[in-house]
Amino acid sequence: MKIRLVISVLSLILAVSLGILSAEYTDNLCSGLSRQVRAAADKRDAVMLQQAQEQWQKRVPLLSTFIPHGHIDRLTETLVRASEFLKNDELSEFDAEIGCAIHQFGVIGKYDCLSVRALF
């Protein structure tokens, strides 16, 4: 019984630690990429946007282990659309997609953070 108790307490501590780490990681990643995407949009820099997109794609497998896949897929699609609009010089659509992407970065970044909205 003592071993089970210790394992239970350790499991809870591990779950809490992983929760805090994942929240911190997602928040940092999303705010960093969000800034990069905003900067790319301001400069109309397709290469910079492409780099942000690639960085995002690299993190997708890890993020998918704790964030609903729908959230991740929506942001991936938005970034792809924004990139295509920029290539075709459709700047008003590009700006709209960038606004959408930055909002989605915010949503994913705060997904695991403790908040009244998330708790209830």
């Binding site: 089970r4 809870l12 704790f66 609903p68 729908g70």
Partner: peptide
Amino acid sequence: IELPLVHGIIPIITLVSAEVI
């Protein structure tokens, strides 16, 4: 399958640990 597996595993770990404690 859109939900990460962790969303099922973490509640189970929590429930089992809480029950044992």
